[in-house]
Design a protein around this nucleic acid. Structure first.
Lengths: 117, 117
DNA sequence: GATTGACACCTCGATGGTCGAGGCATAGCG
DNA sequence: CGCTATGCCTCGACCATCGAGGTGTCAATC
């Protein structure tokens, strides 16, 4: 799964949002270092909805129409599975980082084996 | 930076390797869920070397020639910076994960504000 | 001694994800 | 009335990546 899709699931796991809000939320979540554009997000949302990972509900706020997307159980599962994979990879990264800087040294405050697993 | 490049830096931060080994190490690091092929890794290695992030040293083992790549200081810095960004994003992901499952609940054992920062 | 598979490096065409620009529509502001 | 922000969507261009293929050595098997 591409990162953009993962982040879309991620921000929608916090709360239901409409597309425009998703774009901004992802931008914020990744600190701008990976901010998918609208041209990326909207097709992803439609694809996810078609695949049963999201449901959309039309909403009208101040005359403007929105489509509010919410995760389904299937979408929630997908996010949790992807997150698990992410955390496993994170462990390897942390291990790589700490391994070479101080051979034999294990940073207790940062990973300590209890972080992200 | 793309994930492939990041993982190349990651595995080379553990120890110097030759290209073929890098491919396998990345595969292992990401549990196979993101395993760049040789066609991806070799151009990346050359690009990194051209950019001063890696140095290569020819080696001959049992008649077979290898190019062993090692991180430069510049490459090490790049990896650490990228790792920092990764960890920040990880925090947001963990927050998203824990937020919706149990509203108002903060998992103390997993993030607790001390993980990955 | 010929074939097969693992090691080791590299290139190239095809694919597919992403960007950026653009279109369309409404609301609010100066 | 234009301009900006909100809000959704499409499309062409680009670029990273994959997968297949090429080259060569070595060890093991037949």
């Amino acid at each position: 799964m591409s990162l953009s899709k993962f982040f879309v699931l991620c921000v929608l796991h916090r709360k239901p949002m409409h597309g425009y809000e998703v774009v901004q939320a992802v931008e914020k979540t990744t600190n701008g270092c990976c901010s998918p554009s609208e041209g990326t997000v909207y097709p992803v949302l439609n694809e996810f909805e078609a695949g049963g990972y999201l449901t959309s509900r039309p909403e009208t706020v101040q005359g403007r129409k929105r489509k509010v997307y919410a995760l389904t159980d299937k979408g929630r599962d997908a996010f949790l599975i992807a997150t698990e994979a992410w955390m496993e990879v994170t462990q390897h990264i942390v291990a790589s980082r700490d391994m070479a800087t101080e051979p034999g040294f294990q940073s207790p405050s940062l990973d300590g084996g209890t972080c992200c697993e």
